[in-house]
Design a binder for these strands. Sequence first.
DNA 1: CAGCATCCTGCGTGATACTG
DNA 2: CAGTATCACGCAGGATGCTG
Lengths: 122, 122
Amino acid sequence: MAKAFAARTCPVAAFQKMISGKYKLRIVWDLKDGPRRYGEIRSGLLRGTAGSAEITPRVLSRELKALTQSGLIDRKDFGEVPPKVEYRLTRKGRSFVPVVAAIRDWGERNLSGPVPLADAAE
Amino acid sequence: MAKAFAARTCPVAAFQKMISGKYKLRIVWDLKDGPRRYGEIRSGLLRGTAGSAEITPRVLSRELKALTQSGLIDRKDFGEVPPKVEYRLTRKGRSFVPVVAAIRDWGERNLSGPVPLADAAE
DNA sequence: CAGCATCCTGCGTGATACTG
DNA sequence: CAGTATCACGCAGGATGCTG
């Protein structure tokens, strides 16, 4: 675990790995507004994805666990009985928000826009 | 195929899709310095990825084609005989570079850094 | 040199059912 | 409510060999 990452993996590749998965980026984005419960995240991911099917718990759970291990989010488990778990961004995660913002911003102007026709090459 | 993207796909999700694949982001980054030939890109991708195996033509070809269809890069085929093909960023691709830069920048400070220990949650 | 054709494999993703 | 367990599948990604 404490393996020292001998050859520096290229940051871009590391990023790719870190946010691999369909929901990780969107989860981070969702969490930027504050802590959210498991179910809230789940519902939140359904909004805006063009009527995609439900996100299976297995997948969401995996994503959340991965994000936790990446150190981007933090899991807070309140006592028990009716289970209540909140996820929130860590400091690292918060520092990552602007990057996602940049992505989202660019995406809005270039992806959600007009039909993806081959535009001028230059 | 010409489906009109009825419900706006969330920009982040669209981004995810667009750069899905291990090399797309790195290819864009490589191309930011100017046009590159197929083989140059191939070699370029080998540098910095911690002694990964060779990139198979099939994969690289796929990535390049996808990037072309996304409108991020442009393929220029010089005549023939000894095949020579150059890839370069389109206007759209160029506008995307700063985003990759932000990613790379963040990655350098948070991923290539010290051992990924669970840092303070807040 | 810049690819394409074919085969193969792991894993990311989804469906379904069950539990503390 | 917040997950885990099991099964199943498609596809990204690698290996090899061939071509214009």
